[in-house]
Design a protein around this nucleic acid. Structure first.
Lengths: 144, 144
DNA sequence: GAATATATTTAGCAACGCTAATTAAAAGGC
DNA sequence: GCCTTTTAATTAGCGTTGCTAAATATATTC
């Protein structure tokens, strides 16, 4: 569980590190005044432009009825808006309100700044290594 | 949001990458037959030895009543056991059963193997960079 | 035009989060 | 040695977030 001589050992440590990292920054979300499912869905809405409910559910790895209710809540809180797609009137297009964008960006900023404060403990060389690793990890995760 | 000239940009990308990584491996948990809160608590119980309920709740960033119920479920499923601490009879000590240990390790293995399969797409040099970045990130996160 | 497929919602249930209040044991003050 | 206060856990009751099954409305296909 400690040595990283195999790819599987490295995967184990990378996995644990990702868990710890998100657990660390999650503490900042208390100040956001919005639950985790809503915050996460709002993120996809803000950065993914107008989205259909099905696509949004898929992106969040959640079933459509679950997402329908989350969007209800986001609408009730004035953070997102539904309007029917005119090309296919069965479907809805969901987009963020100005308030939704600002709530999301502030929440994200809190997390990121908190994490950045930790990273500043490291040397330039160490930061460069993380930068390069982030690129590699994203490459490994591309298309399934 | 794209360039990484500042520590904050790097934190942003690292944060996003961690989210995507965990979202990727989470798909494997469907086969575990146990909810995420229980699985995560079981992990602390297995690797953190016998723990009090309060400590377990703190480790999982959850309130004691929530953890009490999760431990109820783990006991009902035969994955963990409570017994009262003899030094302080208000407190309980929670530990994993043999079945709890095996359920956790299999679940973890599924996640880790899935992630390892993705990492094998990378070169040795890229894996070395990730290895080194993991160490740096853990260093940055040490003690708060 | 009828049958089928697709997008979303509604209904109802389980798991997980919370706060407030209760119970039981330990620790401290006098 | 009592009596108060503190601490550990649980119970009660509520809101959110996950699911499946069924309903509704629109598109598509034959």
């Amino acid at each position: 569980m400690v040595k990283a001589h195999t790819t599987e050992d490295l995967a184990d440590r990378l996995h644990s590190t990702a868990i710890r990292l998100l657990r660390l920054v999650r503490v900042q979300d208390a100040a956001a005044g919005i639950g985790p499912a809503r915050l996460s869905a709002l993120s996809v809405i803000v950065f993914g432009g107008p989205v259909s409910l099905n696509d949004l559910a898929r992106a969040e790895q959640v079933r459509p009825p679950t997402m329908s209710r989350i969007v209800d809540a986001l609408e009730a809180e004035g953070l997102a808006r539904r309007h029917t797609n005119q090309q296919d009137r069965r479907a809805v297009l969901i987009e963020a309100t100005a308030r939704g964008v600002s709530v999301l960006k502030l929440g994200r900023q809190r997390r990121v700044r908190f994490l950045a404060a930790h990273l500043r403990r490291l040397s330039e060389a160490e930061l460069k290594r993380i930068e390069s690793a982030v690129r590699a990890i994203q490459k490994a995760m591309q298309q399934g």
